[in-house]
Computed example of a mutant assay.
Amino acid sequence: MNQRTHGRYADFQEPYEPSGAARPPNEYGPYESGPYESGPPPRRRGTIKRILISVLVVLLVVAVGTYFWADSKLRKEVDLGKVIDRPAEGEGTNYLIVGSDSRKGMSAAQRKSLHTGGSAEAGQRTDSMMILHIGSGGPTLISLPRDSNVTIPQFRGSETGRLRPAMGANKLNAAYAFDGPQLLVRTVEYNTGLHIDHYAEIGFTGFANIVEAMGGVEMNLDKGFTDKWSGADFKAGKQTLNGAQALAFVRTRHAFATSDLQRTKNQQKFLSALANQAASPGTVLNPFALYPVMSAGLDTLVVDKDMNPYLLARMFLAMKDVNSGDGRSMNMPVSGSVGGNLQWDRPKVKQLVNELKSDEPVTVTSGG
């Protein structure tokens, strides 16, 4: 090739490579000029990403809004800070869950249909009392029979703020009747030595309304029973209880030989079923089911001033787990009776409280 030709076509010729030398491949392979892109084009991927972010933001806003809505509806009326001479806190968290016989806001027709008797202004007592311990070893639910023979100690009046003298031996449910939730907490702590962290109470109407809002609660009864006092009339087998039937189920005691102890077992069984159904995907993931249930419960639930929706949800989830194999339910250990009232087995109670305080597995049996 002469110089003229070389100069004329030099810009179109490939660089000279020695014979036999391999052409170095680029980073995409020997025959590729660039990366091969799969999937949707960049613009479409950006649209999908924006949609996902928008959905997450909406869900976050709804969740935060629901939290503050629920928190605003809680009746934070119980000030545990005013309870005197409290035992030291232990491991885990202890809730005192109370079902009162309050008829406040009930019409005469409602009192008749629910078989509650009394009047809307009748004095309140506690129909059911339970300690729920949540710790590393799983939840433990302990029923406190309302006819338990306990000491009502010195306390500070919830309205007057003045110290009141001890009342001595009494039924446990009398403490609430004398001076409400704060004296009940004081009495439970004094007789057990266990620190109560949170308090939750619901009356007759609120209890029935929650069950109705859920469309009833399914139960499987081993035996049928009737009780003219509570209005109970149940057959054995699987059935769905409405609000009035549920209230009758947890209140019945005259139908049983061990009236108060069997009633507490029924209360535990029902509350576990209620919590299990309330926490099911069919309720939690369905806003048309979730919000009516939440509203029905929050409107009538009385709690301590430090309670919030997270702690309340934790309480319900623990109740759900009680009978699922992850927890345990029991009655407060009893050893007999005094004047018709149940006497706690003090050595067992002491052992039980020590195990709860240390967040150890509960080995104590109920007895009685």
Rank of each mutant, 00 (worst) to 15 (best):
N2I: 04
G7Y: 01
Y16A: 05
E17Q: 15
R23H: 09
N26M: 07
R45T: 11
T47I: 15
K49G: 08
L56V: 13
L60H: 00
F68H: 12
R75H: 05
K82E: 12
G92W: 04
I97S: 02
S102F: 07
S102M: 06
K104S: 15
K104W: 09
S113M: 14
L114I: 12
S119C: 01
A120S: 15
A120H: 06
G123V: 01
D127N: 05
H133S: 11
G135Q: 07
I142W: 13
L144H: 10
P145F: 07
D147R: 01
S148I: 11
S148M: 14
G157E: 02
S158W: 04
T160N: 13
A174L: 04
A177C: 05
L183Y: 07
V188R: 06
T192Y: 12
D197V: 06
Y199A: 06
N220R: 01
N220M: 00
S230N: 09
A232G: 06
D233E: 08
K235F: 02
N242T: 09
H254I: 00
F256C: 01
Q267K: 03
A273S: 14
A279V: 07
P281F: 10
N286R: 06
P287V: 08
S295T: 15
T300C: 03
L317Q: 09
L317P: 00
A318D: 08
M319I: 06
D321S: 12
S324Q: 10
D326H: 13
G327N: 05
L342R: 01
Q343Y: 10
V349P: 02
N354C: 08
L356D: 14
K357R: 15
V364T: 12
S366K: 00
G367I: 13
G368C: 08
